[in-house]
Simulated scan of single mutants.
Amino acid sequence: MQASIPARPPAPAGLRIGHVHLRVSSLERAISFYKDVLGLDLVQRYGPGAAFLSAGGYHHHIGLNTWESLGGTPPPMGHTGLYHTAFVYPERADLGAALRRLDAAGIRLSGAADHGVSEALYLDDPDMNGVELYWDRPREMWPVNAEGQLEMTNRRLDLAALRAA
């Protein structure tokens, strides 16, 4: 039986995820994906087994390491672990540019959706870590029901229109 968790105040509205740190099988292959395909900057290498990448001058959004995973294989389907890391693009045109880079690199999407609040692309990195690339619509465009509650959707995303953005 799980112990009850004492009531606590909610997390502050400004709380955010600072970075994700991934175990990868090949540091160079992972750096190439996150740098050359997604466009992140390589900020620092940490010895022969780790690297840190970011966008916009932040110290790091993604940490990569091979400390316990060099040459390893992805976890099998049906096991627990990270579902995906999500990258928020500031504008729809930026997401369109990212889609064109994925096309040019021959990266196949595993999914794409219009969630009402956002438009999202889904893919896997070279180690089969899920990656979501998306942009948020302005809050005033988010779909809400009659009670004022958010109603996210899962509609088909028009990839041709996004590529043209």
Results as ranks from 00 to 15, higher is better:
I107S: 11
G111E: 06
A86L: 08
A113D: 05
R101I: 04
G47V: 07
A97E: 10
T80K: 14
E151S: 08
P74N: 08
L42P: 06
A98V: 01
A104N: 04
A113Y: 08
Y58N: 10
G56T: 03
T80Y: 14
A112N: 12
Y134V: 00
G72L: 03
L82K: 07
H115P: 00
L121H: 00
R101Q: 12
A50F: 04
F87H: 10
W142E: 02
V43Q: 14
E68F: 09
R100K: 13
N129A: 13
M128S: 15
P126H: 06
L121Y: 01
E147Q: 15
E132D: 03
L109N: 01
L64Y: 02
G111V: 02
G106F: 07
W135I: 01
Q149H: 15
G81F: 10
S110P: 04
G78S: 12
R137Y: 02
P90S: 15
A55Q: 12
P76A: 13
G96S: 03
L95T: 00
T85E: 04
E68A: 13
L99I: 03
G63N: 03
S69Y: 03
P90N: 15
E132R: 01
N129E: 05
D125Q: 05
D136W: 00
A55K: 11
V43M: 13
E132G: 02
G63L: 07
G56E: 02
G111F: 06
H59S: 02
H84C: 04
E147L: 15
M152E: 12
A112L: 10
D127V: 10
R155N: 15
H59W: 05
E140N: 07
I62P: 12
L42H: 04
S118A: 14
Q44I: 08
D125E: 05
A55L: 13
G81S: 08
V117F: 05
M128P: 06
G47S: 09
P75E: 11
A86Y: 06
T66I: 07
G78M: 11
Y83P: 05
P143M: 07
V88E: 15
Y89Q: 03
L64E: 05
H59D: 08
G57F: 05
G49M: 12
A120I: 00
V131D: 11
W135L: 01
Y83H: 13
F87Y: 14
G116D: 00
D114N: 15
D127S: 11
A98C: 07
P75K: 15
S110F: 04
L53Q: 02
W135R: 12
G130H: 09
P75V: 13
A104K: 12
A55I: 09
V88W: 05
G111S: 06
Y134C: 00
I62A: 11
L42S: 04
Y89A: 00
R139Y: 09
